[in-house]
Computed example of a mutant assay.
Amino acid sequence: MRIPRIYHPAPVTQGQQLALSDDAAGHVARVLRMGPGQAIQLFDGSNQIFNAEIVQADKKRVQVQVLSGEVDDRESPLHIHLGQVMSRGEKMEFTIQKSIELGVNVITPLFSERCGVKLDAERLEKKRQQWQKIAIAACEQCGRNRIPDIRPVMNLEQWCAEETTGLKLNLHPRAHQSINTLPQPVEQVRLLIGPEGGLSADEIAMTAKYQFTDILLGPRVLRTETTALTAITALQVRFGDLG
C-alpha cells in the first residue's frame, strides 16, 4: 500500500507528536481505516516532507509521531499565476485540480462580461474555501509540498491592472504568436483564460491596454477548461519542468 500523504495546516518539526486536523483524521481513520503503528507522510506547505507513525487513532482523533523530515522540492522553475474566468460547477473544480497538478502557483477566479457564474459575496467565499480544499487534495495526490493560493474572486480589469514583473498572456483565436515563438527565458507568467463564450471585444482591447500579449494555441476552438490545461502544459514544456 502506498504511504498516504497528508497535509497538516501548522508547521511540523522532527520529533514532534501532533494531532491531525479533523478532515485529515477522518480520512485516515474512517476512509483508509489506518491504526497505530502504520506510516503516513506529512507536509505543511514549507516544501518539506515528514515521515510519521500513527500512535493513536479513533473516529474523531488521530495522533502521530513525527520521525524525520527533509526538503523535497517538486516546484517548477516557472511561476504561473492563472487568472481563470469562473466556469460553472465541476468545470471550475476540474480546472483548479488539474492546473495545480501541472504546477500552477496562484489561481485567481475572475468575473467577466460573459461569466456564467452569479453568486453573492458569502457564497463566493464558501466556493473559494472549497476550491482551496481541492488545491490541498491535488497536492496530496501529485506530490507537491507547497500549497498554491486560491485568491478571492476579482473583476477582470482589476486583475489585469495588478502590477507584475512577469509575462502577461491572453489566449486569442486570432493571435499571431504562439507559446513556441515567445522569447526565452521566462520565469513568471500571468495567464488569462476567458469564459466559454470568450472575452468581449472591449475586454480584449482592455487587456492590450495592460500589455497582455495575445497568443494562439492552435487551429481548433477549445473549451475553457481544456484551454487552461493546454496552455499551462505548453508553458511548462517550453519554460518549466515538463518534457
Rank of each mutant, 00 (worst) to 15 (best):
residue 3 I to R: 07
residue 4 P to I: 07
residue 7 Y to S: 04
residue 8 H to P: 06
residue 10 A to N: 13
residue 11 P to W: 00
residue 11 P to C: 00
residue 12 V to L: 03
residue 13 T to D: 09
residue 14 Q to E: 14
residue 14 Q to N: 08
residue 15 G to E: 10
residue 18 L to G: 08
residue 18 L to F: 01
residue 25 A to S: 15
residue 25 A to H: 09
residue 27 H to M: 08
residue 28 V to P: 08
residue 30 R to F: 05
residue 30 R to G: 02
residue 34 M to L: 14
residue 35 G to T: 14
residue 36 P to M: 08
residue 39 A to V: 14
residue 40 I to Q: 12
residue 40 I to G: 08
residue 40 I to R: 08
residue 43 F to I: 07
residue 44 D to N: 12
residue 44 D to C: 07
residue 47 N to G: 11
residue 49 I to L: 07
residue 50 F to T: 09
residue 53 E to V: 06
residue 56 Q to H: 15
residue 57 A to R: 12
residue 58 D to Q: 08
residue 59 K to P: 03
residue 59 K to I: 11
residue 60 K to I: 05
residue 62 V to C: 07
residue 63 Q to K: 12
residue 64 V to M: 07
residue 64 V to W: 05
residue 65 Q to F: 04
residue 68 S to A: 15
residue 71 V to C: 07
residue 75 E to D: 03
residue 75 E to R: 04
residue 75 E to S: 13
residue 76 S to F: 07
residue 80 I to W: 05
residue 82 L to E: 07
residue 83 G to W: 01
residue 86 M to D: 02
residue 87 S to T: 15
residue 87 S to Q: 11
residue 87 S to R: 05
residue 87 S to L: 15
residue 88 R to S: 14
residue 89 G to M: 05
residue 89 G to H: 15
residue 94 F to T: 10
residue 95 T to W: 07
residue 99 S to W: 06
residue 100 I to H: 00
residue 100 I to T: 02
residue 102 L to I: 11
residue 106 V to P: 00
residue 108 T to K: 03
residue 110 L to C: 06
residue 110 L to G: 04
residue 112 S to I: 07
residue 112 S to Q: 07
residue 113 E to H: 09
residue 114 R to S: 00
residue 115 C to S: 12
residue 117 V to H: 05
residue 120 D to Q: 10
residue 122 E to C: 01
residue 123 R to C: 13
residue 125 E to D: 11
residue 127 K to T: 12
residue 128 R to L: 11
residue 130 Q to C: 10
residue 130 Q to P: 00
residue 131 W to R: 05
residue 134 I to V: 15
residue 136 I to C: 14
residue 138 A to M: 02
residue 139 C to G: 10
residue 140 E to A: 04
residue 142 C to R: 13
residue 148 P to Y: 04
residue 148 P to G: 06
residue 150 I to N: 00
residue 151 R to G: 00
residue 154 M to C: 04
residue 157 E to P: 00
residue 160 C to W: 01
residue 169 L to P: 05
residue 173 P to N: 10
residue 175 A to M: 09
residue 175 A to H: 11
residue 176 H to Y: 01
residue 179 I to V: 15
residue 179 I to M: 08
residue 179 I to E: 13
residue 182 L to I: 10
residue 183 P to N: 12
residue 184 Q to S: 12
residue 186 V to P: 02
residue 187 E to W: 00
residue 187 E to F: 02
residue 194 G to A: 06
residue 195 P to F: 01
residue 196 E to M: 07
residue 201 A to I: 13
residue 202 D to T: 12
residue 203 E to Q: 01
residue 204 I to E: 07
residue 209 K to P: 00
residue 210 Y to C: 06
residue 212 F to K: 01
residue 212 F to T: 00
residue 213 T to Y: 08
residue 214 D to L: 01
residue 216 L to M: 04
residue 219 P to R: 02
residue 223 R to H: 12
residue 225 E to I: 05
residue 225 E to R: 09
residue 226 T to I: 03
residue 227 T to D: 08
residue 237 V to W: 10
residue 238 R to A: 10
residue 239 F to L: 05
residue 239 F to P: 08
residue 241 D to L: 08
residue 241 D to V: 06
